[in-house]
């Protein structure tokens, strides 16, 4: 992609990544800012989704306020060649919202990371036990969420 095309796409992204106003025609603001029709904005979004630049358009919850008060990041020691299979097994659980294979270190051998959410501590324990059985890692480290200092979305405007 050319520099100019990338810049144009980033500009589009910075406008479209704003929260949608809760109004009958929520794409009207972006349409005006971009000098496009509303259908043009909708079509542009559909195009970005097709190309994988936008994962989806969706409501995002504050999981703790939505009742998911017990949360943990769980890291597993899974050999790299088994990560894909273990990752798919972890991703299949509805209580797992994020799952990644990440870089490991000699003194930090964990490779597979999953975010686990639950409505209570008991439920969290149960979820982790189910996850552990499905992933079959050689080792597991549970990192419970103690406090959320910041949670926001990336704002690309500073980079334009």
């Amino acid at each position: 992609m050319s520099r100019r095309a990338r810049k144009a796409e980033r500009l589009l992204a910075s406008v479209l990544s704003a929260p949608l106003p809760l109004a009958a025609e929520p794409f009207a603001v972006a349409a005006e800012r971009l000098g496009m029709s509303q259908q043009g904005v909708v079509d542009a979004l559909a195009g970005l989704i097709r190309r994988g630049v936008v994962r989806r358009v969706a409501g995002i919850l504050k999981h703790d306020k939505a009742g998911f008060r017990s949360n943990a990041m769980v890291a597993f020691l899974v050999p790299p060649r088994l990560c894909k299979k273990a990752g798919a097994a972890a991703a299949a659980f509805p209580f797992v919202t994020h799952c990644y294979w990440r870089k490991s270190y000699p003194d930090w051998p964990y490779t597979l990371y999953a975010m686990v959410h639950a409505k209570s501590k008991t439920e969290l324990k149960r979820n982790i036990a189910s996850l552990k059985a499905a992933v079959q890692g050689k080792d597991m480290l549970v990192l419970p969420t103690v406090k959320e200092f910041k949670k926001t979305s990336f704002d690309s405007r500073a980079s334009l």
Partner: peptide
Amino acid sequence: GILRAIKPVFAWKKL
């Protein structure tokens, strides 16, 4: 405070 926002979720790495 239950719903944070309705918005497109970008794969920033793709940009």
